[in-house]
Amino acid sequence: MKIALFPGSFDPITKAHVDIVKRSVELFDKFYIGIGVNSSKKGLLTIEQREQMIRSVFEHDERIHVIAYEGLTVDFCKSIGAAYMIRGIRTVSDFEYEKAIAQMNHSLAPDIESIFIVSKPGYSSISSTIVREIIRYNGDVSQFIPKEALPYL
């Protein structure tokens, strides 16, 4: 069984994240969206709100499982039996950053492959960081967020 993990903070989930999931899920038998818990970061949404939000976005696809985790992502991959880690790439700088992480992960867990999925051009400028800023200043984020996620904001 081919199992993959798409890790991230998803604070909040964006249409760009959804696009990466929809284009990746077809490649695997089981697909986890892992919400990484970083105790040193103050998020916009709680971990529980993010889990509920993501579940509502993907409630009709039984292949997708949403779970929060803490610690090294490669250790979490091992705990769920995932041999693949999905990472979205929007820009050249994303690639450099993700490449460095993938190389470190490979050193820690050579049996886990990192797979980069390049975002569609229309989504390359969307990031959770920018969406959070728009929300903080009461802007309209509906064009960047899946409609199922809007009630959580």
Rank of each mutant, 00 (worst) to 15 (best):
S107A: 14
M53P: 11
I3F: 04
S128G: 04
G81C: 13
S114M: 06
I64P: 00
P7H: 04
V37Y: 04
D11R: 10
I64E: 01
G36F: 00
V131E: 06
F31T: 01
I67W: 06
K147F: 11
F95A: 03
I117Y: 04
E133M: 01
I101V: 10
F31E: 00
F31L: 00
R90G: 05
I3M: 12
A82W: 00
G81R: 04
I126Y: 09
V18N: 08
R132P: 06
V74Y: 08
G139A: 03
L44G: 03
A109T: 04
V131K: 07
N38I: 07
Y152D: 14
V141I: 12
A4C: 04
Y97W: 11
G88V: 02
K78M: 05
E148Q: 15
Y84Q: 03
D75I: 15
I35K: 02
S40V: 15
K30W: 00
I64R: 02
P7M: 09
I89F: 04
P121G: 06
I13E: 01
N138Y: 10
S128R: 04
G71E: 08
E148S: 06
G88M: 03
G8E: 02
S142Q: 12
S24N: 05
S93M: 07
V74E: 05
T73M: 12
L153M: 11
E70K: 13
F76Q: 13
A83P: 02
P12K: 03
G36Y: 04
Q52D: 14
V66N: 04
H17R: 05
V131H: 06
E113R: 03
A82I: 02
F76L: 07
Y84I: 04
D94N: 10
V25E: 01
F116W: 03
K42L: 15
D29M: 00
V92C: 09
V74P: 13
I67H: 08
V57M: 09
S40G: 07
V92W: 10
Y84W: 07
I47C: 11
R132F: 03
I80P: 01
I145V: 13
E96Y: 10
S39E: 15
K42W: 14
V57W: 10
L45H: 14
G34V: 05
E96M: 14
I3L: 14
T46D: 08
I89W: 03
I126H: 08
F116Q: 03
E96T: 14
D19F: 01
I80H: 01
K78S: 13
K30Y: 00
M1Y: 00
T46H: 14
S125R: 10
M1R: 02
K41D: 04
I13P: 01
Y137L: 11
L72D: 06
H60W: 08
R55P: 07
L5T: 05
G81E: 07
I64N: 02
L5A: 06
K41R: 12
T14A: 08
K99H: 14
I13M: 02
Q52Y: 05
D19V: 06
E148G: 13
D140P: 08
H65Y: 05
A102S: 15
R23T: 07
A109D: 10
G139M: 05
I117T: 00
F76N: 11
I117N: 04
D75E: 15
N105I: 02
H65N: 08
Y152A: 11
M1T: 02
R55Y: 06
T14I: 05
R90W: 10
